[in-house]
Design a binder for these strands. Structure first.
Lengths: 340, 340
DNA sequence: GGCCAAATTGACAACGCTGTCACATGTTGA
DNA sequence: TCAACATGTGACAGCGTTGTCAATTTGGCC
């Protein structure tokens, strides 16, 4: 299509191609009048620079790569949406590259990605944001990258955080305030550092309320509906039965609701259930799920901004960037046995 | 990174860069011995061709663009997964580009995409696969593209179909066979041609069973949970109450379940509910939702194969490609009042 | 051995942009 | 009025491939 090249524009504007290039790239030191002439030439010719040539000569792709290992589809979509928002504004494109967190091939894969890369930098989402060997590979290759919601607080100049721990503590305190004392907790997939943070938050919350952490009320899940079901069974069948269950993510929470339903336990009258993530279906459950909402899209936007800044060599003041997760009160929580 | 270029490989192998290029691109007419020498040089130097240079010289990107207007997130993810599957195998990358189906900017946006494109071809998913002005723009620009699951049966050499209509007819007949006669239907978003197909299938099914289409049992929805709720209200409050409801997608079906639950109607004893799509949450509902499953990922894979074939100039025999949607029987359907 | 077609290989010019650096043109201050 | 310096602009060499086309080698056959 694009038969019209920079040369044509230059001719029409009566300048050299270099000047056209300058206008294109918003470089300084172009006289206003010249700029105008070039711009009008561009407009009348409907010129668009050839991205391949740009990339070859300038050695940059105007493309951001998104690396992730399939958490829930709604999470991925939100991340994509946020990243695309910023990319579009800045005339970048988004290449997606899901990968297997567990795979031993990951380092090799990333190596290839880096060498052969069509991207200028990477966005990493959990659990990849905490994948040590991946991070090392990226650092060694001097690659640009930004981490979204990592579980540790390292590399604060290339990370966007959220307060997993604090919000979980708050949620736990909220359950206590409702009159619950036997509060079950379903831990998430140990491969995700954020899950450990959430568990810590739960313990913080109990501690703050002067309640002990009872291991009989803590079960290990794996972020899936099925594991939520299993943990709920284990938890609800034992002598010490919780009156509230806090699952580390919504899918597991829904598993708990499923079990409660089968066991003819009413929610929230007989059992309160809360989750984390605020997946769309949570609002459509009967009853709607009380949960914690991460500002996923906003985090992705911030991360992308950070990455593009990095690409442009902007020096980022080393201040921690944290977007707050907030509790969404809905219908699955109610007064516990110790209320009033 | 990639300081090693084709020249280095050529020197090491004692051939010209052109020969290296030939090996790289699997061109014919290279002697076996030569090929081996080149390949070993590539291996020892860990050479990877520079994608920008390739793209500039060869005028192709080795990138596929995915165009979609946000249907459900699980649908998008499945499409992406399928497309990526094939892309990875063929050493292509995937650029995602969600767009607003309704927007009047779409043609302009696509124009820009085409002119400035970093992709070799496009994958279109519903409802974009039926967007006339978009299709026209693509055709006029001589762009490569393939449509996934379009509602019409045009352009069969660049489309991958599924049997929306037939599967809906089958589902309707199934409900009749269970003893239902008053079967409600919630029509989907009129902007999606596939939705019209599903409605036709419903009518076909009734007709085949010798039942009339009663407009009081047909409501217009918009593919959202909320619209499912509204339609269910309208349907269940009227004198002629259906004993089964067929929603054009799962989200609306879940809306129906919600309303039934609130109205203390038991599913499936008092009301059977079925949907379409088989979204993940459907299996986790109480009861699990009977629905129709489209082979989304497989369709995306097939479409991507088709597109890459097109890019390589493969002539595709003009035979209709159709992947079957199949009914998933679960717990939300049961005998109707006229059974036995 | 000689001849022809087919197979194999190479030289070199694109591809369309950005970076470098030299040069031209203005601008300021004494 | 003229250095001295800042600002604008252009010529041209890459960037690392692929495409074209001509040159060379090979193999088959008499």
């Amino acid at each position: 299509m694009s038969k019209v090249s920079i040369t044509d524009v230059a001719e029409r504007a009566g300048v050299s191609i270099k000047t056209v290039s300058r206008v294109l790239n918003r470089e300084p030191n172009v006289r206003g009048a010249t700029r105008d002439r070039v711009e009008s030439a561009i407009a009348t010719l409907k010129y668009t620079p050839n991205p391949f040539a740009r990339s070859l000569a300038g050695n940059r792709a105007f493309v951001v790569g998104l690396l992730y290992d399939n958490p829930s589809s709604s999470y991925v979509i939100d991340i994509q949406r946020g990243a695309l928002n910023v990319c579009r504004r800045e005339h970048y494109d988004l290449l997606i590259h899901p990968c297997d967190f567990q795979s031993s091939e990951l380092p090799a894969e990333v190596g290839h990605l880096l060498r052969n890369s069509k991207v200028d930098g990477f966005l990493l989402t959990p659990p990849l944001s905490d994948h040590e060997s991946l991070l090392t590979a990226l650092r060694d290759a001097n690659a640009h990258f930004v981490r979204v919601a990592p579980g540790d607080h390292a590399e604060i100049d290339r990370s966007v955080f959220t307060n997993d721990r604090e919000s979980c503590a708050e949620m736990t305190r909220y359950l206590v305030s409702l009159g619950h004392e036997a509060i079950g907790f379903i831990v998430g997939d140990p491969a995700h550092k954020a899950m450990a943070e959430r568990y810590r938050g739960y313990k913080d919350g109990l501690k703050a309320a002067g309640l002990p952490v009872d291991q009989r009320l803590v079960k290990q899940g794996f972020n899936t509906f099925g594991s939520g079901v299993e943990c709920a069974h284990a938890m609800l069948r034992q002598p010490l039965r919780p009156t509230a269950v806090f699952a580390s993510n919504d899918e597991m929470a829904i598993g708990v609701m499923r079990v409660a339903h089968q066991a003819a336990l009413r929610i929230p009258e007989d059992l309160s259930v809360v989750g984390f993530d605020d997946i769309p279906i949570g609002q459509q459950m009967f009853p709607a799920l009380t949960t914690i909402r991460q500002p996923v899209e906003a985090m992705a936007m911030t991360a992308t901004d950070l990455l593009l800044g990095q690409l442009r060599g902007v020096i980022h003041t080393s201040k921690l960037i944290l977007l707050e997760s907030v509790i969404q009160l809905r219908e699955s929580t109610g007064p516990g046995p110790h209320s009033r």
